[in-house]
Each structure stands twice: as C-alpha cells, then as structure tokens.
Design a protein around this nucleic acid. Structure first.
Lengths: 218, 218
DNA sequence: ATTTTTTTGCTGAATATTCAGCCAACTGAA
DNA sequence: TTCAGTTGGCTGAATATTCAGCAAAAAAAT
C-alpha cells in the first residue's frame, strides 16, 4: 500500500539528499523571484523547501555557494534548452537559427520568475565577478554557433554589407533585451511579442531566408 | 584666501543641504556598483559621501526612499540626455533617430557603474514594483516618440512590410540588450560596438535612410 | 533473522555579527 | 539667540553560520 504511492516511494539516502539539494535550489529561485536578492534569507529558502533552518549550510558551504549553484543550475538548464532546439530543428541554417531563437521564449526557461533571477544575478555581476564567470564559457560556445549560422546564411543568400559577427552580436543583444521585457511586463504577451520582434528582425536581415509569413497589420 | 578656493566657497544652508543630498545619491550609485545592492549599507553610503552615518535618515525617510530617489535621479538624467540629443540633432527623422540611439552610448549615462545600478534595480523589479513604476511614464513618452520616428521613416522610404510598433520595440530591446554588454564586459570597447551594431541594424531596416558609411571588414 | 554498530541526512537552538533607524548633543549660518 | 543641518553613540531586530545531537538507514555482527 505504501509502496504503491509514487510520492511515498522509498528513497535511498543518496536520492533523498539529491532531492533535498534540488529543492533548496528551486526554493532559492522562487525566493529571489518573489522577494529579491536582498531579502532572500537562508531561513526563508529552507522554509520554501520545506526543510529546517540549518539545512542550507549542510548542503552548501555558504549562502554565496548556494547562489552560485543556483546560477549554475539555471545556466545548465538554459544550455540544454538551447542545444535541444538546435538538435531537433530542421537541417538548414535558417531553420536552426529560428529554432534556437524561438526556444529562448519557451516558458520553461523564459518566465518572469526565471528572468527576475537572471537579472538579479546581472545586478550583482560587477560586484561579484565569480557569478558570471561561471557562465561565460557557455556563452562563448553558443555565440560561436550563432556566428557560424549567420555566416553560412549570408553566404547562401549573397547578402551584401552583412557582417556575421555584428549581426550575431545584435541578435544576442536583441534577445537579451526582449527578455528584460518579460521581467518588467507580464509573461505570455511578452513571449509572443518577443518572437514576433525577432522574426521581424530576421526578415529585415535575411529576406530571402525569412520571407513574410503574415503581415502583422495588428 | 578661503573664499578664493572654489571648493570652500561659502554655501547657503539650502545649497549645502542640496549638495549633501546629491552627494548621498551619488555615493549610493557608486556603492551599488561597487558592492551590489545587498552589501550597500547606509553607513557605507554616508562614508562614500564623506558624511556621517546618521545623515541618511535626515535626508531620506528610509533606506528604501534613498534607493527610490537614486533611481529617479538616474532616470531623470537619462531622460535629459535623450531629449537633449533629440533637440540638438538635425531636423530629419532619420537624423533624430540616430542621434537618440547614439546618445544612449555616451559615457555620462552609459558606463559600467550606471549599468550595474540599472540592472540591480531591474533585479529588484519583480519584488518591489514601486521601483520601476517610477520610470514607466518616462519610458512611455520615449517609446511613443520612437514609434513616431519609425513610422515617419517608413512612410518616407516606402518601406514594405515594416511595422513601426514592432521595429520601435525591437530597437528599444536591442539597445537594452547592448547595455547589458556594457555591464558584463569592459566599458569603452562595448560602447563602440554598441553603436556599430545599432547602425548596422538601422542599415538593414532602412537602407535608403542609412546608407553604408564604411564596410567594417574587421 | 535479529541485534548491534556505524553512518549520515537533518534539526533547531545558540552565537556573533551586521545594520537600519533613533536620538541627544553639537555647530555654524541666519 | 535660534534652529536647520549634522554628528556619532546606541539599540533592537534580523541573520549567516556553527554545532551538539536526533533518528532513520545502512552495514556489520550475532
């Protein structure tokens, strides 16, 4: 009887520990989103995870370490989403480019909670360089991929006066800026608008590859 | 002798008070940039301003009020810079558009310190809606102006399949994203790159208005 | 199988520190 | 003299971190 209930399934110690650790990271994300960086205390994180007060320092050496691991978790999740979109997309560079860009606006990784946390970390970036340096290598790989996609598209379409480096940088920045809108405004509308703006941008840059699908006369 | 030294010029009470207040706001910006939001204490702000610890609660009711006034100050400064660029630019919409966009990358308002503070506030935006709501009306005016500029340019150039709303939103987001780069990387290079990306973006959108000035072969 | 020992994830109280806000005293402009 | 602006000591509340110990799980012994 007890065995038949999934949530009461007996966990090995290692599994239980891992699950608790993950609960704490999730609770940290929720707390930062709800209360902000400054008002996120270890006690509240523990409470949010349904665990006791002293637990954080058992799983993580310090509060800072908890924050760092939380950032790493989100970073990993983001990367997985990005590369999954790349893998699952059609073979052409244009398809790939559109796929990874649209993937950025999927709710699992793009929602107000997540954005609140990302920008909270950005806000701490200058005073605590450790935080962001854990993401840069990831960003480098993604950015290189983006440049290569753009370069190929430019060659395919014989687009003149298009510099792959600058365009890739612009696309990244545009995406980043659009995610800020997700934070400052309310969720779903912003996601759709983000996709729309990005499509329109691709259209202007590479008209042969991204023909007008619909005239958004609004 | 004492009167001849500019910094020792005798100040009236009102002037002195105003100056102290401003010193505190400036010190707050510097402290948030240097230590982050969480580690910015009233004592350190006062120290940075060269004043005593108790003074903040004289000029501002609470710590939160100090933060809010700091944000308002930066917001005002930004707006002034924006509209000054608009006023001082040439008469055509294209000139105006380029002028206001380039103005965003001028060191007085765009530098790592300022960006660190902006993003720190963004990070708190979700948990403390008060902060950002003090800026939204400003953003609305600027955004409307941007839309109108884009609309006029589209009409002038008979550009097809260009939606002023979406383009204006894209330009804003792109600018926002580029400023994040100023924070995460080091200053001056990023400013130049920002301008370059933005020009390239305008070129792609409105080729008749923004002809190729130089082929950035780099 | 049963009991004993060891391991370990976890608890919650204790500690030391930090800090926002308060206030009584001080100073110099009006 | 008056009192706006300023100073810096003080306090209570909040909080990160420590730690002694609990209880369940795992391992070892019987």
């Amino acid at each position: 009887m007890t065995q038949s209930q999934p949530q009461t399934a007996p966990l090995s110690r290692a599994e239980g520990k891992q699950r608790s650790r993950q609960k704490l990271i999730t609770a940290t994300i929720n707390s930062i989103a709800k209360r902000g960086f400054a008002d996120t205390t270890l006690a509240r994180v523990a409470e949010g995870a349904g665990l006791s007060r002293g637990i954080v320092n058992f799983h993580f050496r310090t509060k800072d370490a908890l924050f760092l691991e939380t950032l790493k978790f989100m970073s990993r999740e983001y990367r997985e989403c990005w590369f999954r979109a790349l893998d699952e997309s059609g073979p052409s560079p244009a398809e790939k480019l559109e796929a990874v860009l649209m993937a950025e606006f999927e709710p699992p990784i793009s929602n107000r909670n997540r954005m609140a946390v990302w920008f909270a970390f950005y806000g701490e970036a200058k005073s605590r360089p450790t935080y962001m340096s854990s993401c840069t290598e990831l960003d480098d790989i993604i950015h290189d991929t983006l440049i290569n996609l753009c370069r190929t598209i430019i060659e395919e379409g014989d687009y003149e006066n298009r510099n792959a480096d600058i365009i890739a940088f612009g696309i990244s920045s545009l995406t980043e800026g659009l995610t800020l809108d997700i934070l400052l405004n309310t969720g779903a509308i912003s996601l759709d608008r983000g996709k729309e703006v990005l499509r329109s941008h691709l259209q202007a840059l590479f008209p042969k590859h991204f023909p007008i699908t619909r005239c958004t006369g609004n």
